[in-house]
């Protein structure tokens, strides 16, 4: 297995199949917490942490618990429970470790449980069949790389979007378009731009 696999995985997850603009995962926080670029960054950091750790945990659970026992059909319920408990655990942990970090990330953590990008990426890692392609061990590495790529893609897009929205607030927009409608059009144009990256790897 060469480094290209990882490179392709990260570029593909981050740009070509961007979670928000191409796969439509995590649109709620994309619209909800992108009013200021500062909060957007905070959310991205929390998402990145939970997404990567959650991907690893769900991958391990799928291949070491669910698949050997032939009960892969309960994966949805298992994954959401893992993610919910992980978020709870992380919240408690951060609270204990650093008050400052908790202040920065704490408010986003409960929101993350209902962020479909997390569960979506965990499901995608299984559906993409990395384990079948590279073996369970190396598959985990590829899945983790994709999760990092997806989180980076999320951060990139939400940061860019929030910066645009900050400007939009000051712009002279027709009354009916003010707020969410014009933001959606902006997101549509961003998606068009990302469309140009299709098929490069």
């Amino acid at each position: 297995m060469s480094m290209t696999v990882f490179f392709v995985a990260i570029v593909s997850a981050m740009l070509i199949n961007n979670v928000v603009l191409m796969r439509f995962l995590g649109v709620c926080p994309f619209l909800g917490v992108s009013k200021k670029s500062e909060t957007a960054l905070g959310m991205s950091a929390a998402v990145m942490f939970v997404m990567v750790v959650g991907s690893i945990l769900t991958y391990l659970i799928y291949y070491f618990v669910l698949e050997p026992n032939d009960i892969t059909y309960i994966s949805t319920i298992a994954f959401i429970l893992v993610i919910a408990s992980l978020v709870q655990f992380v919240e408690m942990f951060i609270k204990k470790i650093s008050k400052k970090l908790y202040k920065a990330l704490g408010i986003y953590l409960p929101l993350i449980v209902t962020n479909c990008a997390i569960l979506g990426v965990a499901e995608l890692n299984i559906r993409e069949g990395y384990a079948a392609d590279y073996g369970i061990g190396q598959g985990l590495l590829v899945a983790t790389t994709s999760a990092i790529g997806a989180a980076l893609g999320f951060a990139l897009v939400i940061f860019a979007f929030s910066s645009i929205r900050e400007r939009l607030d000051a712009a002279n927009v027709p009354k009916a378009w003010k707020g969410i409608p014009i933001s959606l059009i902006v997101a549509g144009i961003m998606a068009l731009a990302f469309l140009g990256l299709e098929g490069i790897v």
Binding site: L21, P174, W177, P181, L184, I185, G188, I189, F194, L195
Partner: peptide, 13 residues
């Protein structure tokens, strides 16, 4: 993908 954003945006407006 872009169409989804555009259509919802237009309907909202």
């Amino acid at each position: 993908p872009a169409g989804g954003f555009l259509v919802i945006g237009i309907w909202l407006a």
